[in-house]
Design a protein around this nucleic acid. Structure first.
Lengths: 152, 152
DNA sequence: TCACTATGCTTGAGCAGTCAAGGATTCGTT
DNA sequence: AACGAATCCTTGACTGCTCAAGCATAGTGA
């Protein structure tokens, strides 16, 4: 097997393990999955804490229906609310509620801790993490900005 | 957000994109998913082309029931057959059929090509691929051997 | 103005995996 | 020899996503 295929399969494997870790902690402490957390995080990053659902899908690498299904429980428990657009009747925004913002802060702390444990020294150096991130960014999954050197 | 959390989320994102690529080509050309292909590949690597189902689960990072469900369609289409153990009545082996072996060869060629395209020069150097692989191996998902330098 | 097309979103059906429970078999201890 | 614990596997119920279809609204060109 080539190195490229080997790397591909390792990537799949590593992700499964990583997601499992995050899911366990996040659901234990906050009752949300990593997917839920990521949704809330991207909403939190958006101006006004709100996005069109279709844009959220793009940013998450999901389909529109995935967003509909994923947001439903978050709306039900009051972390996210639905807002409409006065100009365009087709559009529905997803917006963080105040509760959602608060809870997100706690979740973020948990997620940061898991990430820190996962990439802990001495096994992982700061350079390793940056390098991994850069390599993964090359693999794409459009929707996220790179973080390498800006063009000259 | 820390670099560690950023890398974690990028890993998830990159995997989704990668899996989508493999799934599209493999299912188009051979009617199997990446998960199916990986199952067959691991079976093919095992001595005699057969493994206990529980060991296959371990190697794939799945649960036993995931293997049961995943193998079912492969048995149905004749790529994998079930074998019993004369010594231990609890055990059921999963074994590649002759057809399975042939088809696996073709699938492997396809998978190699996707991998080669994904990690094509000039964006990716041989060192990049090796480095990525090494970093991912550190992230674990036990069951696969590392491929770094052997102990002194 | 009015059809046609494009966009945003939701819904039904289906697939791939999980967990929890259960059945069958084996192992270990007395 | 026999009981209890452990192992291997499958099954039912569920989750979280996909695709395809459909509905409503908006934009476009004759």
């Amino acid at each position: 097997m080539s190195d490229a295929l080997d790397a591909s399969l390792r990537l799949v494997r590593a992700q499964v393990a990583l997601v499992k870790r995050f899911d366990t902690s996040l659901s234990g402490l906050h009752g949300v999955s990593l997917a839920d957390f990521t949704m809330l995080l991207r909403l939190g990053e958006a101006p006004g804490g709100r996005m069109r659902r279709v844009d959220l899908a793009e940013k998450l690498g999901l389909t529109a229906s995935g967003v509909t299904r994923g947001l439903a429980p978050l709306e039900r428990i009051g972390l996210v609310m639905r807002e409409t657009d006065a100009r365009d009747g087709r559009v529905a925004y997803a917006a963080l509620t105040d509760t959602g913002r608060e809870r997100l802060t706690d979740m973020l702390a948990t997620a940061e801790q898991i990430a820190a444990e996962t990439f802990a020294a001495p096994l992982w150096s700061k350079e390793d993490i940056g390098h991994l991130s850069a390599l993964l960014t090359r693999l794409g999954g459009t929707g996220l900005p790179g973080h390498g050197a800006p063009p000259p």
